[in-house]
Structure formats: structure tokens, C-alpha cells
């Protein structure tokens, strides 16, 4: 099956339900910036495939930096240096030889503010597959519909796919961005505060979507909203000052954490 065929097949809900979502193994990851020598310090995490892992911690603790390591977004920052390894199945993400463009097809990302391209709803979702070589209109139609269905947006936009994405509400735009991300058949979805700019109802829709998507994707979510982490994630990592203080199943973290620092943070005793 070539890449084009794989994209079409992978965008089918039925195929994705049985899809393979690999885990991520982080070993001895340290990261420095010129003005931040301890941005991340000896991070070791085993993130299971097909689950939602939340990363929580105070501002500046390194959680977004950690997330950006998973698709090498930090490479764009001058002076950024890292050591250790991040294994996605048999691929070392941090290996300088890793094809970053190919990596980002496998590891999609959704940001805090929805960032639809200034084009139609259809073209937003079809953008990645077109770059990936899908040209036939029928194939693109199938990918767009499947992706929008997976992102729980199809019913709301199916009668106006040619409209500019900018007319959608913020919550719809964020779901469109998720549809765009999954249209290129990633294995991992990174979400950096995906609902922080949304109203409570749109937030619940995104959380419901995360729950649905985890059947097919490995999801890592960074959030400041601890109740959100508690609601959507299977595992939670608490970071502070660039270090993983505690990493455990979410039920344990939110009812009986092992580390006093975690306890202080999630109960609001953190200074």
C-alpha cells in the first residue's frame, strides 16, 4: 500500500478503530536553552500507546517544552540542546538523522488557539493529504469526511464545506484543526492546552473527542486545568522545574499521590 492509499485507508473510522497506536519511551531526556540550562532534567517516561497522558505543572515547569520534544518543535529555537532519547516504536525522535517532516506526519499537534488556514473548511482538512500526494477528488472527499466525522464536526459543516474556516466558532475551529491533524494519519496527537481558549461547552466537546480519539491514537495533552487532566487522561505526569516529580495513573495522582509536592500542587497548596 503506498502512502496515498494508506492515508485513505487510515482515515476510515473502521480501519482506525483497529489501528496501531505506539507508545513513547523517553529515556534520560535533558534539554537546555542558552538562558535556561535546566529546562528539562533527566526525564524518563513510558507513555503507553492508545492512552491519554496528561502533563501538568506550574507555568514554566517545562511541560510544553517536553511536548515539543515529541515532534522536534524545539529545533526551531536557537541554542536549544538536548540529550537522551525519545523512542516512537523503533524511531529515535531525537536522532539528528530523523526526517523531521516525516516525523511530524506521525506526530500531529494541536495548539492552544485554533489556527485554521485562511481557506475553506474542506481545504483545511485536505491540505496535509494533498501534500502527501493524494490528488483524486474522490479520495480527498473520503479523507475529509472521515476526518471531520472523527473530529465530531461533520454534521455541523457538511453542508458548507466550501465556506471559509474563519466563520466557524472557536470550538468548531479547534475541532477542525484536530480533523486537519488526523487527516495525515498520525500515530500520536500532541495537544498543548487545546481547550484553554474555549467556552465550557466547547471544552466538553473537545474532551469528549479526546476520549473517542484515544481508541486510535496515543495522545499527550498539556493542560493547566487539573480537573480537565483528571477527566480526560489515563495517566498523569507532574513536572516541576524541568523534572518529573511523579508519574502514575490519573486515579492515583488525583486521589492519593505519592509525592508531597504533587499533593501540594493539585490541592492548591503550591506556592
Amino acid at each position: 500500500m503506498d502512502h496515498r492509499e494508506a492515508l485513505i485507508a487510515a482515515s476510515s473510522h473502521r480501519v482506525r478503530q483497529g489501528g496501531y497506536a505506539p507508545g513513547i519511551e523517553v529515556n534520560g531526556l535533558s534539554l537546555t536553552y542558552p538562558d535556561e540550562p535546566n529546562a528539562l532534567v533527566d526525564i524518563n517516561l513510558s507513555i503507553p500507546g492508545g492512552e491519554v497522558t496528561a502533563v501538568i505543572g506550574p507555568s514554566g515547569c517545562g511541560k510544553s517544552t517536553l511536548l515539543r520534544c515529541f515532534n522536534r518543535m524545539n529545533d526551531m529555537l536557537e541554542g536549544c540542546r538536548y540529550s537522551g532519547s525519545i523512542m516512537l516504536h523503533d524511531l529515535n525522535i531525537l536522532d539528528p538523522a530523523t526526517d523531521v517532516t516525516a516525523l511530524r506526519r506521525r506526530v500531529g499537534m494541536v495548539f492552544q488557539r485554533p489556527n485554521p488556514f485562511p481557506m475553506s473548511i474542506y481545504d483545511n482538512v485536505a491540505y496535509g493529504p494533498r501534500i502527501g500526494g493524494v490528488r483524486r477528488r474522490r479520495d480527498l472527499d473520503e479523507i475529509v469526511e472521515n476526518s471531520l466525522r472523527l473530529a465530531a464536526l461533520w454534521d455541523e459543516v457538511k453542508d458548507g464545506l466550501g465556506r471559509n474556516a474563519a466563520i466557524l466558532s472557536l470550538g468548531q475551529q479547534q475541532r477542525l484543526v484536530i480533523a486537519r491533524a488526523i487527516a495525515v494519519r498520525p500515530e500520536v496527537l500532541l495537544m498543548d492546552e487545546p481547550a484553554s481558549s474555549l467556552d465550557p461547552i466547547s471544552t466538553l466537546r473537545i474532551e469528549e473527542l479526546i476520549y473517542e480519539l484515544k481508541q486510535s491514537y496515543t495522545i499527550v495533552i498539556v493542560t493547566h486545568n487539573m480537573q480537565q487532566a483528571a477527566r480526560v487522561s489515563d495517566r498523569t505526569a507532574f513536572l516541576n522545574q524541568g523534572q518529573v516529580i511523579e508519574y502514575d495513573v490519573t486515579d492515583k495522582i488525583f486521589t492519593n499521590p505519592s509525592e508531597p509536592a504533587t499533593e501540594d500542587y493539585i490541592t492548591g497548596r503550591y506556592g
Partner: peptide, 9 residues
Amino acid sequence: RQPAAFDLR
């Protein structure tokens, strides 16, 4: 307050 951890217990 949606208490957690010790506060929840």
C-alpha cells in the same frame, strides 16, 4: 472547589 487528593479524602 472540586477537591483532590487529601482534600478530596
